[in-house]
């Protein structure tokens, strides 16, 4: 009995002692923090994806509370709605950004881009890219080992086993930009997100000359510039043998897609324009065409919007 009592008393004494020590330590080392940080953190999506540039949502919340001007901060996951509610809570001006989606700019499927060798190293795009050209003859194209897939926190990007290329699920993609950073070839770009996930983009990043591109891949951009000529909005530029469609200027008229000889320009969520028969009186109509074309295109773009 005595032993039992002694044991219980000792344990109780120890417990009290520890509690007292903890209390004083907690008082002494207490960190004063703005309570609003906790509140803001709760408003953020909590994905901790790093898309905002901070290590996690807490870091973002801290910055949102402490900075006076938060126009440079944006949570791609929560989007404008989330930023607005945070800004309202803090009484600051809400940063705005149009929604974006990760876009994989390579069309070199297994069928279009023949394999010339087999990579036997660690299955990582970064490893293969540091070593050599890749399993195909194209040194710019997708390597297909899925570094982008590995970093995606939202399960929004997957390798299609048939094409060997990653595909983005636009509904899941939050445009956090993790895949953009992970891709050693710089193939993935954040582009403007249209309604119904529509998109028009050049699905190639090869800066090789046309002949070299064609040798390696049947779906590459050869820099012929036909698309740039036909674009009514001046959205397409050709630089270093590569066409680029500016997402801010493009209105999804789809004219370029009809012109592209290799199919490097890709449409998503839209049918291609019907192929017009070659205009018989082309030389005559030439001076008028530039004026007419934007109209037609505007109409097409409107139609797209209306849908």
């Amino acid at each position: 009995m005595e032993v039992l009592l002694f044991t219980i008393l000792t344990l109780c004494a120890l417990g009290v002692l520890a509690a007292v020590v903890l209390y004083f330590v907690a008082r002494k080392f207490r960190v004063e923090e703005d309570p609003r940080i906790d509140e803001v953190e709760k408003m953020l999506p909590g994905a901790n994806c790093g898309g905002c540039g901070f290590a996690g949502c807490r870091g973002m919340a801290d910055a949102l509370v402490k900075r006076d001007d938060i126009s440079a901060l944006f949570c791609p996951v929560g989007g404008s709605a989330c930023m607005k509610s945070v800004a309202d809570y803090l009484g600051k001006a809400a940063p705005e950004k149009e929604p974006q989606v990760a876009t994989v700019r390579c069309g070199g499927t297994c069928a279009k881009r023949p394999r010339t060798n087999e990579f036997d190293g660690a299955a990582s795009c970064a490893v293969a890219s540091a070593l050599y050209v890749g399993e195909t003859g194209c040194s710019f194209g997708c390597l297909g080992y899925g570094d982008c897939v590995a970093v995606c926190a939202f399960d929004a990007i997957r390798i299609n086993p048939e094409t060997g290329l990653p595909e983005v699920d636009a509904d899941k993609c939050t445009a956090c930009g993790a895949c953009v950073k992970a891709c050693p070839k710089g193939i993935i770009e954040l582009r403007k997100k249209w309604p119904k996930n529509r998109a028009v983009y050049v699905s190639c990043v090869s800066k090789d000359k046309g002949a070299v591109v064609m040798k390696a891949c049947k779906a590459g951009c050869i820099g012929c510039g036909k698309c740039a000529k036909v674009c009514p909005f001046g959205a397409i530029t050709v630089e270093n043998n590569l066409a680029y469609i500016d997402p801010q200027k493009c209105k999804l008229c789809r004219k370029c897609e009809n012109e592209c000889p290799t199919g490097a320009i890709r449409l998503v969520g839209m049918e291609p324009l019907p192929k017009e028969p070659k205009a018989p009186a082309a030389p005559k109509a030439a001076p008028e065409k530039p004026a007419a074309a934007p109209k037609a295109a505007e109409a097409a773009a409107k139609q797209v919007k209306a849908e």
Partner: peptide, 12 residues
């Protein structure tokens, strides 16, 4: 294990 494959990346 492909140890060096990744060490090389890290070193770079």
């Amino acid at each position: 294990l492909p140890l060096l494959d990744f060490i090389r990346l890290g070193k770079q």
